[in-house]
Computed example of a mutant assay.
Amino acid sequence: MLDAVAAVLTVLVVGALLFLGGSVLLGRGEAAPPADPDRSPLELPVDRPVTADDVRGVRLSVTVRGYRMTEVDWLLEELARALEERDGEVAALRARLQDTGRAAPGAEDAPSVRAGGNGSHGDA
């Protein structure tokens, strides 16, 4: 009988210690206060558009209950690729607009090239 009481007390003490340890490591269920939108430990340029290298340079702080670094690193890499694609498209469109602007004054004399044509045929 005394052995059964000792076993029950041992199980209760071990359970209480596990619960206490889990509470200390994982928190006690309080919600974190909302982040201040005007303050961020991250620094991004304010005087120019954000570039892919700016995104790649971001380093997030890690806490005990932090994030999965591989997932966030993957996400940042995808965002950097999207920014590179956007910047490439913008540069191509600007160059195309500049070329169109230069060709506009003499456009009446030059033969027009239609979509799908390569401009090598005399009659389009």
Results as ranks from 00 to 15, higher is better:
S61A: 12
V62F: 01
V62M: 04
V62K: 09
V62W: 02
T63Y: 03
T63P: 00
V64A: 04
R65G: 13
R65L: 14
G66P: 03
G66I: 13
Y67H: 14
R68H: 08
R68V: 15
M69R: 11
M69S: 05
T70C: 08
T70A: 15
T70M: 11
E71W: 11
V72C: 01
D73Q: 07
D73R: 10
D73G: 02
W74F: 06
W74P: 01
W74L: 05
W74D: 05
L75H: 00
L75R: 05
L75D: 02
L76F: 06
E77K: 08
E77D: 14
E77A: 10
E78F: 01
E78W: 03
A80Q: 10
A80Y: 09
A80R: 11
R81T: 04
R81I: 03
R81F: 01
A82Y: 06
L83P: 02
L83K: 15
L83C: 04
E84V: 14
E85D: 11
E85S: 10
D87I: 15
D87A: 15
G88W: 13
G88R: 15
G88E: 14
E89M: 12
E89I: 12
V90C: 03
V90G: 09
V90R: 15
A91T: 14
A91E: 14
A92P: 01
R94S: 07
R94A: 13
R94T: 11
R94I: 10
A95Q: 07
A95E: 03
A95M: 00
R96Q: 11
R96C: 04
R96W: 09
L97N: 08
L97D: 07
Q98E: 10
D99R: 04
D99I: 00
D99W: 00
T100S: 07
T100F: 08
T100M: 06
R102C: 03
R102L: 08
A103G: 00
A103K: 02
A103W: 00
A104N: 12
A104G: 06
P105L: 13
P105E: 08
P105H: 09
P105I: 11
G106V: 11
G106W: 06
